[in-house]
Amino acid sequence: MLLILYAQKIANISHLTVNDVHINDGTVAITFGTSPIVLPVPLASLVRELVVTRRGKAEIDTPDDVPWLFPGGRPERPLGDDRIGQRLHKIGIRPRQDRSTALFPLAAELPAAILARMLGVHL
């Protein structure tokens, strides 16, 4: 959903940490660039659950001090971009194509400089 709704690259998604997620008074926001973006209710619930239940792919249990939102097999590394890409392909999401498609409506709604700052997209 982060790729489709916010046109994020897989590399940006894989390197998200729990510190990039902000849960306050019933709202959930996530920071990709410099400004947190409030997530819509269905996605907010999923991200809130992910923060609590996340675990690495090869770990029996992920230690609490692992910062990654998507932990990899080793605590010091996030889940690899290639693994995320493979998982997305399995459920019918084509990362490059779908990310490009997501950028068009976002670009139509916001000035380029603001969109770039919010999403961490560099001109």
Rank of each mutant, 00 (worst) to 15 (best):
M1A: 12
L2D: 03
L5N: 10
Y6N: 10
A7C: 13
A7R: 11
I10Q: 00
I10D: 01
A11N: 10
A11L: 00
N12W: 00
N12I: 04
H15I: 13
H15A: 15
L16R: 09
L16C: 10
T17Y: 10
T17H: 10
D20H: 06
D20A: 00
G26I: 01
T27N: 13
V28N: 14
I30L: 15
T34M: 04
T34Q: 05
T34N: 03
S35D: 15
V38N: 03
P40G: 06
V41R: 13
P42M: 04
V47P: 07
V47F: 03
R48D: 12
R48C: 04
L50A: 04
V52H: 14
V52I: 12
V52W: 05
R55I: 07
R55T: 09
R55A: 12
D61Y: 08
P63I: 09
D65R: 12
V66P: 03
V66Y: 07
V66F: 05
W68R: 04
G72M: 08
G73A: 11
R74M: 10
R77K: 11
R77C: 05
L79F: 00
G80Y: 07
G80F: 07
D81A: 04
D81K: 04
R83G: 00
R83T: 10
R83M: 12
R83Y: 06
I84Y: 02
I84A: 01
I84H: 01
G85V: 00
Q86C: 08
Q86K: 11
R87P: 02
K90Y: 03
K90W: 05
I93N: 07
I93Q: 10
R94L: 02
R94C: 05
Q97N: 14
Q97I: 02
Q97R: 05
T101L: 02
A102R: 03
A102D: 08
L103H: 05
L103Q: 08
F104T: 15
F104A: 13
P105I: 01
L106N: 04
A107H: 15
A108V: 04
E109F: 09
L110V: 09
P111R: 10
P111H: 11
A112N: 14
A113K: 15
L115F: 01
A116H: 08
A116C: 14
R117N: 14
M118F: 03
M118G: 09
L119Q: 12
G120E: 12
G120Y: 08
H122L: 13
H122T: 13
H122R: 11
L123F: 02
L123C: 03
